[in-house]
Design a protein around this nucleic acid. Structure first.
Lengths: 231, 231
DNA sequence: TCCGCTATTTAGGATAGCCTAAATAATATT
DNA sequence: AATATTATTTAGGCTATCCTAAATAGCGGA
């Protein structure tokens, strides 16, 4: 068994840690114990323990008290899981008719059980989609992704017009609400007003009939990622 | 939380035990510790331990040293898992193009992760099939099954003609071989000869062009379940 | 620079599953 | 009936993952 050997499959919890770390890392700094704990809704002490094991397996590198980074191997594993998750989300919505606010949970369960072959068959059946129903990019079978914009709707200046690229998928009720407001991948949004002191953000969905202006909290807007429309 | 309450989902191993017990029970006597251990390829001591826990949860009844039986609740749980398994097998072969000798493994993994809703959506997409690709009957969503014949090909008398109803699905290479011989659900088989002393069984597949007679071991024939053709 | 808050780690436990070896019960044989 | 064989259970352990409480490290502010 060579040192390069990877394939032997990881446990569900391990895959969850890697996904969480990947996500946090993408958002900037190395992932800290605390952030991981919050993300996974477990105690920081438990994270410390698991971090040691992941480091021993060469999946992450750990600088004590300063956080954690994925190794190449760890990143590959994270991307495999992410691919499974996102292909599943696509398949569940497009083929099996799941509503977009409920695919996340189901995919979360299945991603640990589905084989690579199954996922590839689903991907093929779907024509190898590039984005999941929330706009997240799907890694290819050999671990390529181009993660998109990390500019959130909350950062757009007044009068800016942007296209929604991706919506954070973890909370079904928030998703449902966003959909109701017309905020979903592909929608064009104009920022009408931003109240001071973290006040609500007023916007209009472009090209929508009954386009009354609506307002959302900064915290919600920051889970919506957008790309600039005009340059 | 009432005493009747059931739904809270069971762990993968627990579901596997219940399936195994269901299967063994169907084949006659109450399931013994040893048989369960062999079926699940674990040590008898481990089974003893799990049996205690299952009994505490009211899923089985245990008469020490004499075996184990499912309670109504346990049977319901077993049938739910079996339904998941078999619907998955159908879906994987019919929709995703899996070869019939490999669906079992994949379904085995997924059956513990897939929600009831997902399974029902798959079932609907398939038109609520009654049998899986190996001829096993699929329990309905509310726990009805009519288990078919338990007469095996090895019990058919010489010159008897039978229709294959179901083939035991656990071993891919055996399945592949049986398929090669033309033994699959629906096939009509005539027994040509039975050698004495557990000797091989010679048969012919009816209505098959190049129908040369072939022979299989009793042990293999006993994994093929049949119904009588002539009465 | 020292203090105190927060983040992190360590210590000590729990639970679910699994294992091997040893003890015990049931059954079969003489 | 006594013993040998086999099936089952008990005892004692291991691993992965989680937890709480206590100890320690790092850092911002007086």
């Amino acid at each position: 068994m060579s040192a390069l050997q990877v394939a032997r499959s990881l446990s569900g919890p391990v895959e969850d840690y890697l996904k969480a770390i990947y996500d946090l890392e993408r958002a900037g700094q190395p992932a800290t114990t605390n952030e991981i704990a919050i993300r996974l809704a477990i105690s920081p002490a438990s994270v410390s323990g698991m971090v040691r094991r992941l480091a021993e397996q060469g999946l992450i590198r750990h600088e004590p008290y300063r956080g954690v980074r994925l190794t190449t191997q760890g990143r590959r594993a994270a991307l495999r899981t992410l691919r499974r998750h996102r292909i599943l989300e696509c398949y569940l919505t497009e083929v099996l008719g799941y509503p977009w606010d409920r695919v996340h949970e189901e995919a979360e369960q299945m991603e640990h059980a589905a084989s690579e072959e199954l996922i590839d068959r689903m991907a093929t059946a779907l024509g190898n989609p590039q984005y999941d129903p929330h706009g997240a990019p799907i890694p290819t079978a050999d671990g390529e992704v181009h993660e998109g914009s990390d500019r959130s709707l909350s950062e757009v200046e007044v009068n800016g017009v942007v296209t929604v690229e991706r919506v954070h998928d973890e909370d079904g009720s928030r998703l449902r609400y966003l959909a109701e407001l017309g905020i979903r991948p592909g929608a064009k949004i104009r920022i009408v007003e931003k109240a001071p002191f973290e006040g609500p953000i007023t916007f209009r969905v472009e090209g929508k009939r009954s386009a009354s202006a609506r307002a959302i909290a900064v915290s919600l807007a920051s889970q919506v990622f957008v790309e600039n429309d005009e340059r």
